[in-house]
Structure formats: C-alpha cells, structure tokens
Design a binder for these strands. Structure first.
Lengths: 226, 226
DNA sequence: CCACCAATAATCCGATTGGATTAGCGCTAT
DNA sequence: ATAGCGCTAATCCAATCGGATTATTGGTGG
C-alpha cells in the first residue's frame, strides 16, 4: 500500500528537499507539487478521484492563497484528503486558524525529516493526526483558557446502574473494550495477558446478558458511560 | 538538579513499577506516593514548601477522590506543582475534564517507561507540557468541533460530512454494520451476498480511514449518525 | 481453617472479521 | 465506444472474537 502525498510550499528548495526525503521511502509517492494554495486547488481539479492524494503537506505562508484558506476550501471539496500543516510558525493564532480550517495535523519544520516520515506512517497506521510536541502543548493551553458549560452539568453523580454488578476491574476493562481496543491491546494497557482480558470480557458479557462487543458499545452509549 | 516526583495511583503494582522505572534515572526522586486524590492532598499538608514535588503523576480513576478533582484542588492549592495525567483512558470526556481541571500534560500508560521519562525531562527543559500523540490528536479534534464565533464569518463553507463520500448503498450498509449485524445478516436484509456486504464494508473502511467495526461504531455515535 | 470470589492465565475450537485481489455487469458521460 | 464508477460476487489467508473449560493465586468472611 502506498501513500500518495501532495506538497504545497512556495519555496522551491523546500519542495525539492521534502520530496527527496520522502522518496527515499518507497511507501511514499509524491503525486502533486504546488507552490501555493491556488495552484494546489487548480491542479486538483484535473486529478481523477482515485489518484487524489492521501495527505497534503501544507505550508502556511504563501502568496496568492495561503495554507489556511487552502485547507478550508480543500477539506470541504476533498474530504478524504488529510491536510497536515508543515511550517516554521508556531504562534497560537496560526495554529488555531489552521485547526479551525480543518487541519488534521500540525508539524514544525524543525522536525528532522525522519520524524516527518515517521509521523506520516504513524498517522496512516493509527489514523491519529501527527502533532509536534510543542504545538500540542500550545493547543492544550488554548483549551484550558476556554471555559466550558457542559462540564458543569455533568459533574453530578449518575450511577444507579447495572454497572454495579461489575467489579472495578471489569468496569475498567469495559471502558477499553467499548473504545474498540483488541484484547491484546487491553492486556498491554493493563499489564495483564490478553487471555485474562478476554476472560474478564466474557464475565462482563455474562453479567450484562450480552454476547458481543457491538452490544456492549450500544449499552455504553445508551447509558452514557462514555 | 533533581526532579521531585509524586505518584498517585490506586493500584499498588502501578505505583511500584513506575517508581522503580523512574528511580533508574538519578535525576528523578520519588518524594511522595499516594493511592488516591484524598490521600495525596492529605500527605501534601505535612510537606514543607521546599520539598513540594515538581511533578505529580496522576492516575484518573481512583476511589475516594479521582484524579480530576485532585488536580482541580491541588493546582489551586499548590500552583508550583505540574500535574501530569498518567492513565490508560483516552476517551475525550476524561481528557477534557482533566485539562479543564488544570492538567499540564497527559500521558497514556501504554507509553513505555522510556517515553515517560523522556517526556518528563523534555518538560523540565522546555517547559512544554508532555502530551501523548494520540491525546494530542483527540484534543485537536475537540477544538475542531467547537465552533468559534469569530472564525465563522471567515469560513462559513466547511462542514461537509464525511458521509458524503459514501454512496447511498454504502450508507445503507454502514447503518446495519454499526447496529452489529453480521455480514451474512446484512446480506440477507439487502438481498445481496454476504461477500458483497463485506466488500462494501471494506470500501467504507477505506473511505473513512478506519479498520474495524468498533471504530465505525465509535464514529457513528460521535457524529450522531445513530 | 475453610469456603468463596476476584483476578490472573492458559488451552481448544468454531465463527467471524479484516485485507487483498479478481471479475462481470450496467449506467453515464466524454 | 470506451473509460470510469458503483454494485455485485467470489476466493484465499491471517487475525480476532465468542464460548467453554481448567487452574493457580490472594483476600475476605464465617
């Protein structure tokens, strides 16, 4: 399986270096190179749907159309493309705008190329957007400064549940189960064997009178356990 | 320079393992160990200010007083302590509550010990809060889903449900899939072969960048498709 | 001390799922 | 008319899951 990558950057040296670095790993195919947002969208029009890039590595500061606008337009026109910002800027305004525009990841250019490659591979495996540590910290601070209403209402107790028949350990495992983790992943997280994790799940199924993960998830969402 | 660390976790095995791992690096000194939030705050009262921990590694799910409350109280009583969540849970509700309570970092327990150590050192050097990649991704998604007033005026185009990339048939099949029906049952309901039903599901997984029924259900509930 | 139970772990088995590939058929638009 | 796309279908294989059973350990309460 190959990953089709688009590179959008106004500096030709950046474009070439990045392409060269990515090309050293045959998993990556650079299928589109543009020098600004307008150029990028223009080129996309002439690309058949099956050849659309999987990832667009987008610079922010560019003439004609900048990265934020390109992401805003591109992500609604082509929802299957994952837009990853790749820039030297880390001020909160740019980060915030890019995220609001629909950026799926945000990497700083001072990451060395190995990290970028690694981050993209990790994204393709896990589906999680790649984010540089410093950026993550700033995003967290932004969230902290934004007070929220819905936390107030739900601070009260709920309980009175069939959950009461489950042991602490079983509740813990149920949490992970309904989040879609494999037995082996649950085991790894809790430092127990996958077999044991499964055994707990079987006990949970019995107690709740269900017999599949799907039913567990239904219950969990209906009862608001998540 | 040493880093004074507090460990708060209700499982004694976790406490011991973590302490042992950190102690292998002489930079870290575990100065306080508690088994829940109440215990933690109680112990802090008897600690002279100059011996207060620099970092508190806080589990979330604990009896007596959970991590969120402990962070909320602790961070106002002892503003110099950096509270870092260290847990196996990565559902958005817990992440959000912890951040709002004042968490400075959020690490997942499936990070291996080297990463935790590394993250803490990095925090002490740069001042940036340590955040696991998967958590960063989820925080970013939360920000994306929180409409902001001043950005609406400049980007009113977006939205564009990922569902739109799915064909009618695929949406039909997705509905049944997330309700827990087996391939053969989906096939029977739609008068097609189980193989065909499965083929559609595989196409859906590709388009939505997921790879399991559990993830599909997650998406469906989060996006309110059910 | 013994019964009980939660938690741990392993094994065996059949059913189901995930992943990749190939292929025919019908409709649509260039 | 031919290339593209959606829908149909099948096959192969590895991984995971659901179900049942057995066993050991460590606490807790009679």
């Amino acid at each position: 399986m190959q990953i089709k990558v688009a590179i959008i950057d106004d500096r030709s040296s950046n474009r070439h270096i990045l392409k060269e670095k990515l090309s050293r790993n045959p998993v990556f195919v650079v299928t589109l190179i543009a020098e600004n947002g307008k150029d990028f969208l223009q080129q996309l029009k002439n690309v058949p749907p099956e050849l659309l890039p999987d990832v667009a590595l987008m610079d922010l500061e560019m003439p004609e159309m900048d990265g934020v606008n390109a992401i805003a337009l591109g992500s609604s026109l082509y929802p299957t493309i994952r837009f990853v910002v790749l820039t030297i800027f880390d001020d909160e305004d740019k980060i915030f705008k890019a995220i609001r525009a629909g950026a799926f990841g945000y990497l700083l250019k001072d990451e060395n190329a190995e990290n970028i490659e690694e981050a993209l591979l990790h994204m393709h495996e896990t589906g999680a957007g790649p984010i540089s540590p410093g950026i993550a910290h700033k995003i967290l601070q932004m969230v902290q400064r934004t007070p929220d209403e819905k936390t107030i209402q739900q601070t009260q107790v709920q309980k009175e549940d069939p959950l009461l028949v489950l042991t602490d350990r079983e509740q813990e495992i149920l949490q992970l189960l309904v989040q879609g983790y494999l037995y082996k992943e649950i085991g790894a997280k809790l430092n127990i064997s996958a077999n044991t994790a499964k055994k707990h799940v079987m006990n949970i199924y019995q107690k709740l009178h269900i017999n599949s993960r799907a039913q567990a998830m239904h219950l969990a969402y209906e009862k608001g356990w998540l």
